[in-house]
Amino acid sequence: MSGKLLPNPTPETRIYWEKTALNELWMPYCQTDGWVFPPRFHCPTCASTEFEWRQLSGRGTIASFIITHRGGAGYQDEVPYFIILVDLEEGPRLVGNLYGVPVEPTAVEVGMPVEVFFELRDGIHLPQWRPAGSKVTI
């Protein structure tokens, strides 16, 4: 066990986590109102339950970031590290860590292109991020 926190998937998010286990990023999509995130059984705009799951490109840009000097559970030996917000090409926003760059403020900027990869953590595959074109994994 890594000691890091694990998401506790619910029926609403089951497909999301089943797809990450295949190294793919999928979210529910409403024909009328677009992406629905976090995943749920209805569209929060039109209340439709007739939507489908679609795959996302896994490409996006850094919307914001911090470099934390205090580690969360299981992260204590990794400080300092990035926690970033990624605006996906398709619109939804995800949180993650950034790998493959020096951990310093000048190494990144808002708007920098990133791409997803997946961290296997105690049986769950979590979306994580690296600069677009990087081959870094953890």
Partner: peptide, 13 residues
């Protein structure tokens, strides 16, 4: 599920 697993140690991060 979507924020806390990423090393969020507290409100400061």
């Amino acid at each position: 599920q979507f924020e806390r697993p990423y090393g969020i140690a507290g409100t400061f991060s």
